[in-house]
Nucleic acid binder design. Structure first.
Lengths: 194, 194
DNA sequence: CGTTTTTTGTACTTGCTGGTCCAAAATTTG
DNA sequence: CAAATTTTGGACCAGCAAGTACAAAAAACG
């Protein structure tokens, strides 16, 4: 499929509009007409740019959101080489999620996961990248001798992913960020003692 | 609403059948006809026992599943007073979730959460109970002097909830239990060193 | 320009699903 | 046993939302 610049702009408008809309509405209840209304597009355009219909559109949205999650923390993620950078990262994530409350791109992703194997794949890739970035941070802390060398960076990073993921999940369900903060603090504290 | 014994049995059959069915199918795609087919009941019966229709049924299922999650780990949860009991608990949870893979009652709950405030409440209550049980375990370890007394039991329990929750979530998305195990191990290890 | 391709709008179709209605069967009750 | 109540079955309805058809507008192109 090739599109002219105008076409690409429209396509992008649809994806971004749908993404934002999906952050506050469960994917099951979002209709193509909703998307059309929000993005000022007609059904014809939606199917023109997403021949696979709703499924294709949701997948495109998933990819778009997955991108956002990582680039969002990028300044922090790639520089986890001092204790300050770790806590700064923690603060950024907590503040970010606390501000947006339930309207969470990652959470919306998870919601649309069940049923769509494509989305599950996108999430798997996202988590893997995330874990890799954290792992790199652990390794760099070991390299500078601030963390014991016998710590397994892979498992530590895996635990971080689980903790953050779970904290966000709880935040979405309950509206409270306690668990997210506690998990983050415990894990960083664990690193500190290692 | 009052039902005869026969009626209660039917109601229960519907809830349990629907619950099992929901574990492997996303709630958005589950229809009342599906439930009827699986539980050998007619639409009439479903609306007879759940006057609020689908929403009421899903809520009943949510409560049923929430019960199951805790009673499932109950032998372990109420006896977290030795290191062996903690690791036994860990092993039980990991084994359990690894066996069931994606068909996870808690995960299915989370899925149907978005959009239904009732379900969100059920989940909040479940998480709170869970956290309380873990907290009690931490306290008892402190009482017996196996864990430092200056550790905050609330925050520690909160972190555990987040870690497990996230691990399960990742397991559902990727099919791998690495993160769940890593989170569990890191946290227990953290306790050990405290 | 004129033609060809892309983009957009809209009316329509189709299938599905939650929910209603009502009557028959079974069960309880007196 | 007869009346009242509960349980069950299934036909039916209404609305909604995905997807299609097709033509007009706009742009690209030579």
């Amino acid at each position: 499929m090739k599109f002219t610049p105008k076409g690409q702009a429209t396509r992008q408008r649809i994806v971004e509009g749908a993404a934002e809309y999906l952050r506050s509405n469960s994917p099951g209840s979002v209709t193509l007409d909703d998307v059309g209304a929000v993005t000022r597009t007609s059904k014809g355009q939606i199917f023109h740019y997403f021949p696979d219909g709703k499924e294709g559109l949701l997948l495109a949205v998933a990819r778009h959101e997955a991108d956002g999650v990582l680039t969002d923390q990028e300044p922090h993620l790639s520089a986890l080489d001092t204790w300050e950078s770790w806590t700064a990262w923690r603060d950024a994530v907590v503040a970010r999620y606390r501000a947006q409350g339930r309207h969470c791109p990652l959470g919306a992703l998870m919601d649309q996961m069940s049923g769509s194997p494509g989305t599950a794949e996108v999430i798997t890739e996202l988590l893997a990248q995330w874990q890799r970035a954290i792992r790199a941070g652990v390794v760099s802390m070991q390299a500078s001798g601030q963390v014991r060398a016998d710590l397994d960076p892979d498992r530590t990073a895996a635990a971080f992913v689980a903790g953050i993921q779970g904290g966000v999940q709880v935040l979405r369900a309950t509206g409270r960020s306690d668990q997210l903060e506690a998990a983050f603090d415990l894990m960083i504290d664990y690193l500190r003692r290692a």
